[in-house]
């Protein structure tokens, strides 16, 4: 245990992450609507010690009922359209929608068109677009923080 904690201490020292000024928070609900799993790996990584997005008050929550932001990955398969819209409906207002990765942005999507629903921005009002295949953890954190700071 102490060795692991020492490892983490060293990683934190090397990363030298600045502390966030002021108290704010944002609860994010993630929905995978048909991604290749690379966006999920990077979204998980923003909690790793090298990024530690929780220091900004950002958190991934387990229910849309608790969420401020619906963060969507993937090109929206026909089979995920219903669950995605249900998750959005379950969110309290005000609520925002973020598209994570090129697929969710409708860019360079590889699929049989018959298996896809409409692109995300035609199903829901998209407030934040985070391009990349996949976007890096640093890019994801920066884009979300910009949305908070932008009001």
């Amino acid at each position: 245990m102490f060795v692991l904690l020492r490892h983490l201490q060293r990683v934190r020292r090397e990363a030298a992450l600045p502390r966030r000024q002021g108290a704010r928070s944002l609860a994010i609900r993630h929905v995978d609507a048909g991604s290749c799993n690379a966006c999920e790996h990077e979204l998980t990584a923003i909690a790793a010690p090298q990024y530690d997005f929780q220091r900004f008050g950002l958190d991934i929550v387990a229910s849309p009922r608790h969420a401020d932001v619906l963060l969507v990955t993937g090109p929206i398969t026909r089979r995920m359209e219903g669950p995605l819209l249900s998750a959005y409906e379950a969110m309290p207002e005000p609520r925002r929608v973020a598209a994570l990765g090129d697929c969710a942005l409708g860019c360079n999507v590889l699929a049989d068109p018959a298996e896809l629903a409409l692109p995300l921005d035609q199903l829901l009002p998209v407030d934040l677009r985070i391009p990349g295949c996949p976007p890096t953890p640093a890019e994801i954190s920066a884009a979300i923080l910009e949305m908070i700071d932008g009001g």
Binding site: G34, G74, T77, R79, M80, L110, D112
Partner: peptide, 11 residues
Amino acid sequence: LFYKHRGLQRA
């Protein structure tokens, strides 16, 4: 499973 079926092989 297959909620994420994108028909990649067919495509």
